[in-house]
Design a binder for these strands. Structure first.
Lengths: 198, 198
DNA sequence: AGCGATGGAGAACGAGCGTTCTCCATTCGG
DNA sequence: CCGAATGGAGAACGCTCGTTCTCCATCGCT
């Protein structure tokens, strides 16, 4: 096989990593299999990513950018800021229904490596923090009280983890209806009903 | 070391397994370390549990019984059926605050082994199903609409997974307040607002 | 007392895997 | 053209770990 541009080789490596790591788990995929799937030699792989851990982190980083990008693109199609919050759960539902869906890649990675690799654990926390921040921006833009962010985030996380374990898209619908109810309760007058615990 | 009653040996093995598996992850703990921590010989361990996988399943089963027992005992202290639902989240908050809390043992096990071991995956699903069924019984006893069960379950799952990743007890409080709001909305009149999607 | 079974301590085996090394073909600058 | 560097293919290394095996002490039973 002829040599290959470095950027393209990186892309190939990350494509193979994403496909295999997500589908079968990180520990279940060896560097040798990654070599075969990427078409790169082990030498090349190791000069791009000196350790498997760094390849895992790079996989999570790239997937994070794409995942949040897809979510934001879907949500932005709603003009009404109030409708953007349920749209998050609509997108989750679509995602859960995709063939090959195997739960949240970051929670899976955390379960496998969070106790072993601080780099991976940090990456997972960063991703979840970014997602939470995005929800907070939607809540704010809709003129809703900021205390809604936490519950909405928990509903989304619960839906992701449940869909991952049971393998259906139903949790997204349940979460969306619950989110609607919370938004309605908070948007009507309910802020006082809700006081955040000090 | 003198021989030991079989039931006691089983207990010792499961004690060691639970402590080490939960604290450090299943794959990170080898049978050799389990031997040291349990005080049993490798031979004995293997005649009690012919494979590591079976030991993992037994660990999850015993923990499931204890975990749901502790939860139910805490919740049962509330006389008012309506108060029993928030009490679930109170108990979660206590649990999250315990020293050594490392997230939900079943979700952790699923992340590590769900893709590899169908026995473990089944055990995790059984545990989650049992927990969901328990919530359903609380919802029913409180005279609330059954559609509340799903959202409450998702809030609890989201709280567990978030507390596991970020390591604080705050998600439990957020989930409890959200649960209160959902119960209030459903209990007042809001059932129609909510209609489950067909 | 003698014997067969149980079990303890730990060595040994075999597989998997992350990482490195060897060997060789190709390429590119002078 | 030539020599140094790049990179491909894959063997090799070293370690971990699940599982099994060896050797020997102990104990119950007749």
């Amino acid at each position: 096989m002829p040599p290959m541009d470095t950027a393209l080789a990186r892309e190939r490596a990350l494509d193979a990593a994403e496909e295999l790591f997500y589908a079968r788990g990180i520990q279940a995929v060896g560097m040798d299999e990654l070599r075969g799937a990427s078409g790169l030699s082990l030498k090349r792989l190791y000069q791009l990513f000196p350790t498997k851990e760094q390849l895992v982190v790079a996989y999570l980083v790239r997937r994070d950018e794409r995942w949040r990008g897809r979510l934001a693109a879907h949500v932005a199609r709603q003009r009404d800021p109030r409708e953007r919050i349920p749209a998050v759960f609509d997108w989750l539902q679509e995602w859960f229904g995709e063939t090959g869906f195997r739960g949240c890649a970051w929670l899976n990675a955390y379960g496998e490596l969070g106790a072993t690799s601080t780099l991976v654990a940090e990456q997972v926390r960063a991703h979840k923090e970014a997602f939470r921040g995005y929800l907070a921006s939607l809540v704010d833009a809709a003129g809703l009280p900021a205390v809604l962010t936490g519950p909405l985030f928990l509903l989304a996380e619960g839906a992701m983890v449940t869909a991952g374990v049971t393998g259906g898209a139903r949790p997204a619908a349940e979460a969306r209806e619950a989110a609607r109810a919370l938004v309605a309760a908070a948007g009507a007058d309910g802020i006082s009903r809700w006081s955040p615990t000090p």
